[in-house]
Computed example of a mutant assay.
Amino acid sequence: MKTNLSLLSVLLCTLLFPNTLTAQDAESDSTIYPYVLPIWGQKAQDRGFGDQLQLPFGFNVNYVNAFIDMEITEFGLAIAGHDLSGVVNKETLNFTNVNATTNGLNYRADAWVLPFLDVYALFSAVTGGTDVSLQPTWTDATGETILQLPEFSSSVEFDALAYGIGTTFIFGWEGYFLSTDVNISRTDTELLKDQVGYLTLSARVGHRFFLNKNNRDLFVAPYFGMMYRNFVGSKGNNGTINMDEVFPDLQDTFDTTVDAKIQANDDEIAMLNSNPIQNAGEIAKLTAENAALNTIKTKVDDSGVFSTEIDYFIKKDLKQTVTFQFGFNLQLNKHWMVRGEYGVADSQRFLMTGLQYRFGVKKRGLQ
């Protein structure tokens, strides 16, 4: 009786739900593509490529380190509301070196919407620093140098957040693959009032090598390519920074220089005191100079000028926008992949390494 009831139940289920499969059924039937993405995943399965598709959803965590040489193409300066652009600008500051270094974590979530098209969103949290060297130089109308200060450098550290979207196209044939990638991102940093747009274009070509003939999920895919990166939509940025952040030793240098001058005057006064009557005029002059120096030092230190906010306008461009890229993807299994990449050019260096986890969401009825 129980056997007859069981057979009847199976028959009713077959009649009422003829297209319903269990997850176990789908896994045992190699003609069924079980996941909601990519679109046309079933077509790829029908053509025998289903086992070559990655799991459709992924999450990446990457460490990124970059060094970039830049040039200042426009610059303006105001201190305490006074515009100094007429005398302090790109030409007079004479920037000799400008570079930036950033490092931090990049997070990316992606999905294969078509077998050859991946879309993703990215978010980065980085720290970095900007090194600037300059030798202020002023010339007259004929171009003759009338004043040139010694070359000096300053470094400013910053934190930045970046977020963006991108897409990857990929084509494969007999183990070879070609991929192109484009993404655009925006960066927020406390140093700049406006966001900075960034465009990245890249193309890579490589080959897949299986590491275990009995396990086609384990393979390494080395590649090489080129990457283009540049600012987009930027007409320059306004920013505000304290003077002691740009020149952290300026107050100590000022105080040390004044103290050294006062000490030198005191030493000369001590020598002149061997004949105070004859040297009375010089002694009085040096004593008055020391009093003035002490007054200047006190007023300048108490004025807060060394922590004054500097308002500036700056436009930067990359010296070089293209790098050559070399890297690899090491797939451990369908879920885990390790990636490393290095990019190099005369004025840029780029290093990235990270870990990727992939998973699938099954179609309704295959849960």
Score class of each variant (00 low, 15 high):
132 V>Y: 09
71 E>W: 03
127 T>S: 13
159 D>R: 06
66 A>Y: 06
366 L>K: 13
220 V>C: 02
223 Y>E: 13
275 N>H: 11
232 V>L: 09
284 A>G: 11
298 T>M: 13
18 P>N: 02
365 G>I: 12
340 G>T: 06
102 T>S: 10
53 L>N: 05
254 F>Y: 15
87 V>R: 07
347 S>Q: 03
366 L>G: 07
122 L>V: 12
33 Y>D: 06
8 L>E: 14
362 K>R: 15
65 N>V: 05
336 W>K: 01
290 N>R: 13
199 L>C: 09
227 M>R: 15
356 Q>H: 12
249 D>N: 15
234 S>V: 11
203 A>S: 15
196 V>C: 03
338 V>E: 03
86 G>S: 09
146 I>K: 07
149 L>K: 08
155 S>F: 06
325 Q>V: 14
155 S>R: 14
172 G>W: 04
125 A>M: 13
193 K>S: 05
157 E>I: 04
141 A>C: 06
343 G>P: 01
169 F>K: 07
276 P>W: 11
135 Q>M: 12
89 N>L: 08
365 G>Y: 12
25 D>M: 07
39 I>S: 08
274 S>W: 12
258 V>D: 00
253 T>S: 14
77 L>R: 10
216 R>D: 14
136 P>D: 10
320 Q>M: 02
318 L>E: 03
142 T>R: 10
213 K>C: 05
320 Q>Y: 00
28 S>Q: 12
98 V>C: 06
118 D>I: 06
348 Q>I: 05
10 V>M: 03
123 F>A: 12
355 L>Y: 07
32 I>G: 03
248 P>Q: 09
344 V>N: 01
287 T>V: 10
31 T>I: 00
66 A>C: 05
192 L>G: 03
206 G>I: 03
364 R>D: 15
239 G>R: 14
115 P>A: 01
253 T>I: 12
328 F>T: 15
189 T>P: 00
37 L>M: 13
137 T>K: 15
264 A>F: 13
169 F>Y: 13
238 N>M: 08
192 L>I: 08
77 L>C: 13
20 T>S: 07
127 T>F: 05
238 N>H: 15
208 R>T: 01
120 Y>E: 09
345 A>W: 05
188 D>C: 00
239 G>D: 05
140 D>G: 13
365 G>W: 11
299 K>F: 04
74 E>G: 08
182 V>D: 01
205 V>T: 11
60 N>R: 12
183 N>F: 13
360 G>M: 06
156 V>Y: 02
250 L>C: 05
188 D>H: 03
